[in-house]
């Protein structure tokens, strides 16, 4: 596997097409609802912080994401128009994926400056711990949503992971 490089700089500089944020938000909301239904322990670990609004700033991505666990909703927002939020996590896509899939330790990413947090630190900690315990696999979840295209998506994800170095599934975490 190669070391993950940032996404192309143009992606974060150019404004996304008009309907892209809404489409991305709908797709991510569907993913969030599936994960919440499959792994309810995430919400119980979040406890009172289910009501928190998390701003996810993928610095090499085209938009800002607002995750609202209690409403089971993720919305995408244009850069420069950050919505109201309680906590913010900032970093490159590769760092988020590595943490989510158990390849990199969240505290180590924080120590190294690869991830930064602001706002309600308790909410961020609860989210980090809840997601870590859930042992998520985004490729598997997306493949389940993709129906008959699921097998193709798994293969494409494995190929993309090998070529890009991004941790696209939990299998990447295994020795």
């Amino acid at each position: 596997m190669t070391d993950p490089r940032p996404l192309p700089p143009l992606l974060s500089r150019l404004p996304p097409p008009p309907f892209a944020p809404r489409m991305l938000g709908l797709a991510l909301t569907a993913l969030l609802r599936r994960i919440a239904a499959q792994k309810p322990a995430i919400l119980s670990r979040l406890g009172p912080y289910q009501a928190a609004r998390f701003l996810i700033d993928v610095t090499d991505g085209p938009v800002l994401l607002l995750m609202e666990p209690q409403a089971r909703r993720i919305t995408a927002h244009r850069r420069g128009k950050a919505p109201a939020h309680d906590a913010a996590i900032t970093g490159r896509l590769s760092a988020f994926l590595a943490m989510l899939h158990g390849v990199e330790d969240g505290d180590a990413l924080f120590f190294s400056g690869a991830l930064e947090i602001a706002g309600d630190t308790s909410a961020v900690l609860a989210l980090r711990n809840a997601l870590d315990d859930a042992e998520l696999d985004l490729t598997a979840e997306l493949a389940a949503l993709a129906g008959r295209f699921g097998a193709w998506l798994r293969s494409a994800s494995a190929l993309a992971a090998r070529q890009s170095g991004y941790a696209l599934s939990r299998e990447e975490a295994l020795p």
Binding site: G102, D107, E135, P175
Partner: peptide, 13 residues
């Protein structure tokens, strides 16, 4: 104990 399963797996190994 406050660290992730990634830390635990790497350090324990």
């Amino acid at each position: 104990r406050q660290r992730s399963r990634a830390y635990v797996a790497q350090v324990v190994r």
